[in-house]
Design a protein around this nucleic acid. Structure first.
Lengths: 216, 216
DNA sequence: AAGACCCCTGAAGCGACGCTGAGAAAGCTG
DNA sequence: CAGCTTTCTCAGCGTCGCTTCAGGGGTCTT
């Protein structure tokens, strides 16, 4: 246990260094609760857990309709353990001891596999292709920088809804971003110049004191 | 088990003497992993396996979209086993005990049958033949090293989609590769010099901050 | 009408990102 | 073992994008 806690802490540090946000549960039940309440991108589940063991947590989650990909960690390399792990609904398993690199690669593969392609976002004749990272209006393609694209995407994903600058910063910028919210103004300005002005339209509306809205 | 391991080793020696390259998995799950990651020309699958049994491995592979021909080995000669084997997606089965010559003949037949004329990957007039490990643009053939080919293949398999360096590393390099992602930059640079520049085109687009995209 | 507040946008510094040539290390071939 | 190929690292350099700042305009309140 002592050992496990250390491994868990190390894994957490590693993942956070990679830019992931990590919630750590000390026991099975806590983990189950967390997973039921949050929409995680992936769950790493140790079979040996105080309280509910990993199989049970996994089973309970699947029974609950939680579809989040699960990576199971098992200490034994017994045959049945692996099969059972997959049977209860885990998407992958890893036998201890494992290298951190292998762990990371598996986790990434899991997350990638679960990502739905999400074809094309549209707002009027404005279109956004997240997979190809392309954007355009009608037949014309528009070149956007990474940030511009992220901000526009954020807006297009919530058409007709007013998004505060705070919210846009939260969604687009890193957690650690400590600049001013006014950065959003700058990007909206640049976006309008690229996706609106040349086409004589105005799809991003300013709602004074509240934020911005993508007209649908 | 002991027995099986000896048979497996013998088969391996035999096949390697024939000029095949053989990967041997000690258990079902390892086999499954290997088969998911590599593009084998054929898979020989024992039903009696430690860990996942042959049926499950077979099923999992097919569910995963792996189309590699599978030759199933069964110890029993009961009809149902055979039927079940074929049901789960195996292409042929062989009942133990069998002679090595019969085994070899079946395997060859399987490989021959599966050689589809041209699963040729294309992107514009750029073509890639994974089976023959060849590549070219229009009528001109281009010589690529193993890595170059793998990177290009990765890109061509997802035309129009932006692939991050991280993802390319994950797909092309060993799972435990711990070098820098910038290695991808080097290979893209070399690829462009071979498949783009001589033809005055630019098929691999850099998407700053996001990755690379194969133009389709 | 004046002031306060909010938003727009052009300019500019600087840091990050990507490209490429050189070369070391490892592997293969004869 | 020598010579070749392949793979990977490193560092320099040019470019691009991110962010901040400041000045100006618009809008609402008092």
């Amino acid at each position: 246990m002592e050992d496990d806690a250390q491994v868990a802490a190390a894994v957490r540090r590693g993942l956070e260094a990679e830019g992931y946000t990590v919630d750590l549960a000390p026991d099975g039940l806590t983990g189950l609760r967390l997973a039921q309440r949050h929409a995680y991108r992936a769950i790493v589940l140790d079979i040996m857990l105080p309280g509910l063991n990993g199989y049970k947590v996994c089973e309970a989650l699947r029974a609950d309709g939680v579809a989040t990909p699960i990576l199971m960690l098992t200490a034994k390399d017994g045959e049945y353990d692996e099969a059972e792990g997959l049977d209860t609904g885990a998407d992958d398993y890893l036998t201890k001891p494992f290298s951190y690199l292998v762990f990371l690669a598996r986790l990434r593969a899991l997350i990638r596999r679960s990502q739905t392609p999400g074809p094309l976002l549209r707002a009027g004749d404005l279109w956004l292709d997240p997979a190809g990272r392309r954007c355009g209006r009608g037949g014309a393609e528009i070149t956007l920088t990474e940030r511009e694209f992220a901000v526009l995407r954020c807006l297009v994903e919530h058409p007709g809804e007013v998004l505060s600058k705070r919210r846009i910063v939260d969604e687009v910028w890193d957690i650690a971003f400590d600049g001013e919210e006014s950065i959003v103004e700058v990007y909206v300005s640049m976006l309008r110049r690229k996706v609106d002005t040349p086409f004589g339209v105005r799809s991003i509306t300013t709602v004074r004191g509240a934020g911005y809205r993508m007209e649908s």
